[in-house]
Design a protein around this nucleic acid. Structure first.
Lengths: 223, 223
DNA sequence: GTCTATACTGAGATAGAC
DNA sequence: GTCTATCTCAGTATAGAC
C-alpha cells in the first residue's frame, strides 16, 4: 500500500463516484476516505470535474483498446471482405459489457457519464479516432447506407447501449416483470436489435405505415 | 403578466434548467430572474429537486396524453387487428419530437433528465400506466417476442430516443460530417431503425456471427 | 395561506506557509 | 508536494410579517 497521493485519490474517487454518482460525492468525502488533504486534489487535478475526467479516462482507455483490437481481429479474419455488422457491433459493445463484469459499479457510472454532458467534452478529445475507425467499419459492412444516416444509427446505438449499461430494472420494475436476463443475454439481445436497425435499407422509409389507412399526412412529427 | 409566484418560479426554472442544465442552475439564479424570494421556492416546492419534478411533470403530462391519444387512434383505425410496430413507435416517439419543435430547450432537458436518475424516480409514479399501455401494444404487434425481451427492446428504444433528443451533433462533429437532417428525418430514421430491431424474431440469435470462421467461442461478453 | 429576511451548514476553490 | 486557513457560493431551515 505505498500508493502515491494521486493514486489514492483516483482509486477512492473511482469507487465513490461509482457507488454514489458524481454529484452526490463530495471532495471532502473522497479525501476523508483516501486519507489525504483537500488541497491535494486541486493540486493534482485542478478541479472536481477534471478529477472525474481522469477517473474515466483511466478506465476507458483499455476498453477502447479492446474495442480496436477486437475489430482488428474480425477484419483480419474476414480477409478481403468486410466483417458483418454483427461483428462490428460486437467489437464495440462487448468490451463494455466485459468491463461491466469486472467492475459493475464503474460501468454504471460510465452509462451515467455517457448520458450527461461529460462525454460530450471527452468525446472530441479522446473518442475521435475510435469513432472514425468504427464509422469506416460500419460503412464497409453497409456500403449502401448514407454516411450521415449511418452516423445517426451509431448515435442510436450509443444511446441504447449507454442506457442499458446504467440501471437494469427501471422499466421492468415499472411493468411488473422480473428481469432474469444475464449480462450475456442482454448484450446479445442488444446486438441483434441494433444489427437489424443498421441493416435497414436506406431510402425506403416506412413513412405511410405498412398497414391501415394512411393515418397521418403531416410529417411524422406531429399528430 | 399577473402570474402567481408559483408560476413565475416554474416558468423561470424551466427556462434556466433547459438552458444550463439542472446542476448548473442555482436557486438564487432562478429567484433573481423570476424576481421572487428564495424561501418562496421552498414554500411551494420544498426542495430544488421537487421543483425540477414539477417543471418536468408540467411539460411531460401533455406529451404523454398525446402519446396515448395517438395510440388510441391507431388502434381504432386498425379495427380488429393490431397496429404495426411502426405505428406504436410513432405514437411513442412523434409527440416528443413534436414537443421539441415547440420548445427545443425543454426537450433537451428531457433527454438529460431521462438519462440521469431523475426519470427513474418519476417513472414509477407517473410513467407506469403509459408504459403498460405501450408494452401491451408492442406485445400485440409482436406476439412471438418474449415479454422480458420485449421490455429490453423498449429499454433500448428509450435509450436511443433520449440520447437523440439531447444534443444533435456530438458524434457528427467528431466524425467531421455535417448534420443536415431535420427533426422530421431524424424521427423517421429512428422509427425505422427501431422497428427493424423490434421485429427481430426471438430465439434466433445472431450468436456465431453470419460470416467468417466463428470468431469467439466464449460468450459474446469477452474478447 | 403567502411571502420576506436572515441565519446555518456544507460544497468547491485558493493563497501561502512549510 | 503537501497542508492550514480562509473565501465564496450553494441548498436548506426557520421566525415572523402580511
Amino acid at each position: 500500500m505505498t500508493l502515491t497521493t494521486k493514486d489514492k485519490i483516483l482509486d477512492t474517487a473511482e469507487r465513490l463516484f461509482a457507488e454514489q454518482g458524481y454529484d452526490a460525492t463530495s471532495l471532502r468525502q473522497i479525501i476523508a476516505a483516501a486519507a489525504v488533504n483537500l488541497a491535494a486534489v486541486h493540486y493534482h487535478f485542478h478541479s472536481k470535474e477534471e478529477l472525474l475526467d481522469a477517473v474515466i479516462l483511466r478506465k476507458v482507455t483499455p476498453v477502447n483498446e479492446e474495442r480496436t483490437a477486437l475489430l482488428d481481429r474480425f477484419e483480419r479474419e474476414a480477409g478481403d471482405s468486410a466483417p458483418p455488422v454483427e461483428q462490428v457491433l460486437e467489437a464495440f459493445i462487448a468490451p463494455t459489457f466485459g468491463a461491466r463484469e469486472r467492475s459493475p459499479q464503474f460501468v454504471k457510472l460510465m452509462g451515467r457519464v455517457h448520458a450527461e454532458g461529460i462525454m460530450l467534452r471527452l468525446m472530441t478529445e479522446h473518442f475521435q479516432p475510435l469513432l472514425r475507425r468504427f464509422l469506416d467499419a460500419f460503412q464497409r459492412a453497409l456500403p449502401d447506407v448514407d454516411r450521415e444516416e449511418l452516423l445517426w444509427r451509431i448515435h442510436f446505438m450509443v444511446g441504447a447501449m449507454a442506457h442499458t449499461l446504467r440501471s437494469r430494472p427501471e422499466i421492468h420494475q415499472a411493468a411488473g416483470v422480473k428481469a432474469n436476463f444475464g449480462a450475456d443475454q442482454i448484450s446479445r439481445s442488444l446486438i441483434d436489435f441494433l444489427a437489424a436497425g443498421f441493416r435497414v435499407s436506406w431510402g425506403a422509409t416506412s413513412a405511410p405505415a405498412p398497414a391501415g389507412p394512411s393515418p397521418s399526412k403531416t410529417p411524422a412529427v406531429l399528430p
